[in-house]
Simulated scan of single mutants.
Amino acid sequence: MRVYLPCTLPALAVAVEAGGLGPAPLTGYAVTPALIEWYASGDTEELEYVALTEAARASLRMLAADRADGVEAAPRRVVIAAEVPDGAITAGADLEERARVRVGEAVPLTTVAAVHVDDTDAADDIEAAIAALPAADEGDDDAQFTVDGAEAHELMWYATQEIPDLLRP
């Protein structure tokens, strides 16, 4: 099953050095039965886009957490698309995040199909979204609008052999 794993550039560098993502369990996003039922009119490509978008939202939160912990992280959301055995995935029943899954084993880099990353042109909007997250979580509609503005940027697709280029300063 194709799973979209939220990440950051520093975490991607760690995964490359380690040869994979882990330890398990990992939170990912995929085309789940709940997502299919909720988004009944969508085809597989549309459903995968929804899962990718959910992972990008989680990546934004990871960036905010990294920054809060003092980690220098470029303002770029990162989502890793990997093929994970169906038996390693447990779909939740979260009505807010119907695409969320739990991956019960580490994900080797050999199973990564692609990496999706914000273009550098998105940096200002990503920075603004990170700054607005706390207020958005408190119910501030203007802050939520700013956070949602990050989604106006499409993530760029990178082949696995391009990962070293993404990690160069």
Results as ranks from 00 to 15, higher is better:
130 I>M: 07
55 A>W: 02
86 D>R: 11
33 P>N: 08
73 A>M: 00
126 I>N: 06
104 G>F: 00
159 A>F: 06
147 V>F: 03
71 V>Q: 12
42 G>C: 13
113 A>F: 06
101 V>Q: 08
131 A>E: 15
153 H>R: 04
66 D>W: 05
70 G>I: 11
33 P>L: 06
75 P>Q: 11
145 F>E: 14
4 Y>L: 10
42 G>Y: 14
85 P>Y: 08
156 M>W: 01
168 R>I: 10
81 A>G: 05
110 T>D: 13
108 P>N: 08
168 R>L: 13
85 P>D: 12
10 P>K: 11
26 L>E: 01
62 M>S: 11
102 R>N: 00
52 L>E: 12
62 M>V: 06
104 G>H: 07
39 Y>M: 07
13 A>I: 07
107 V>C: 12
150 A>W: 04
42 G>Q: 10
111 T>L: 10
5 L>Q: 04
80 I>W: 00
33 P>R: 10
167 L>G: 08
121 D>S: 15
137 D>R: 15
1 M>D: 06
154 E>F: 04
53 T>M: 07
137 D>H: 13
160 T>I: 13
134 P>W: 03
111 T>V: 11
12 L>R: 01
79 V>L: 01
143 A>H: 06
169 P>A: 14
161 Q>E: 14
47 L>F: 02
143 A>D: 07
161 Q>C: 03
27 T>S: 08
134 P>N: 02
136 A>C: 02
81 A>E: 13
103 V>A: 11
12 L>Q: 02
147 V>C: 10
47 L>I: 03
160 T>V: 15
36 I>W: 01
22 G>A: 01
76 R>I: 10
139 G>L: 13
157 W>S: 06
52 L>I: 09
94 D>F: 08
147 V>Q: 04
91 A>Y: 03
98 R>I: 06
62 M>N: 09
93 A>Y: 02
56 A>G: 15
6 P>H: 15
157 W>P: 00
11 A>F: 07
120 T>P: 08
147 V>A: 09
97 E>F: 12
73 A>I: 00
87 G>E: 15
45 E>K: 02
92 G>V: 00
29 Y>F: 15
109 L>I: 09
56 A>V: 09
144 Q>S: 14
15 A>D: 11
145 F>L: 14
164 P>G: 11
104 G>I: 00
3 V>L: 11
115 V>K: 03
141 D>P: 04
26 L>R: 01
135 A>N: 09
24 A>C: 12
156 M>H: 02
156 M>N: 03
144 Q>K: 12
16 V>K: 02
13 A>T: 06
166 L>Q: 10
6 P>E: 14
165 D>T: 13
131 A>T: 15
33 P>Y: 07
149 G>H: 05
64 A>T: 00
65 A>N: 06
82 A>F: 05
25 P>T: 07
35 L>W: 02
13 A>S: 13
125 D>A: 10
144 Q>N: 12
135 A>K: 13
40 A>D: 15
69 D>R: 15
45 E>N: 02
117 V>M: 01
83 E>W: 11
99 A>D: 01
